[in-house]
Write a protein that binds this DNA or RNA. Structure first.
Lengths: 113, 113
DNA sequence: TGATCATATTCCGATATAGGAAAACGTCAA
DNA sequence: TTGACGTTTTCCTATATCGGAATATGATCA
């Protein structure tokens, strides 16, 4: 089995830095593909492909505006990610005091030998 | 170029559901590989491989305890993910009232034709 | 209809996975 | 040292990427 599809999930979709950049850019408002590509310094086809992935996961919405297609943010899919990581909030503080203490104990024990 | 390595980043590491399960499990305390494998219903070698990835990204720490190796959580690497997604917090509420409104406008316009 | 702009898709290559099976390694105890 | 246990590491296969280049599709306007 290979790695899960990037379109399987918001977790997979945002694993790619360029897609994260796109999402951040879209916070400023809707943009056509060309804009995204130019602002973020990627090729048009790359931008289009990344936007497709984001669309398939539902992080982005499109609407036609004349010749253009305007991509807009739909951040709701990021909420589960935020909440999942939030479940570790107390561990990245508290829990680590113990590990640090443990390491200090080790070093102290070593010195006392 | 292929997809970024799972070990490049916490974002990539947690794209895999089984690795997320492992992290959740480790919130209950340190565990040897066998435990992880058994509790989560995966093979020992799979558990070991996933733990390796998590270790390389720094989300997990190991310490030898006799024959066993105890894996413990180091959640600090999840903080950036939490904070990045947090940057979209107001968009998954507010911003969408507008889009919904936009869609309603469309439908209303259609009925008035 | 035909030209043109904006975007999407298809080919292609190189790479990196996840999982299963089997084999290698490390550590302890007798 | 030998054995047994716990864990990690190869091989292997199937699959899915990301990126560039080129091509195809779509929409608008004259």
């Amino acid at each position: 089995m290979a790695r899960a599809a990037t379109t399987s999930d918001a977790f997979n979709a945002i694993a790619e830095p360029q897609r994260r950049d796109i999402l951040v850019l879209l916070r400023t408002g809707e943009r056509p593909v060309t804009d995204v590509a130019q602002v973020l310094g990627m090729s048009q086809s790359q931008a289009s492909k990344h936007l497709r992935v984001l669309r398939e996961v539902g992080l982005v919405r499109v609407r036609g505006a004349g010749k253009q297609r305007l991509y807009g943010l739909d951040a709701r899919g990021l909420r589960p990610v935020h909440e999942w990581t939030g479940g570790f909030e107390r561990f990245w503080n508290e829990r680590f005091d113990r590990l640090d203490a443990y390491v200090q104990d080790l070093e102290q024990a070593r010195q006392e030998e």
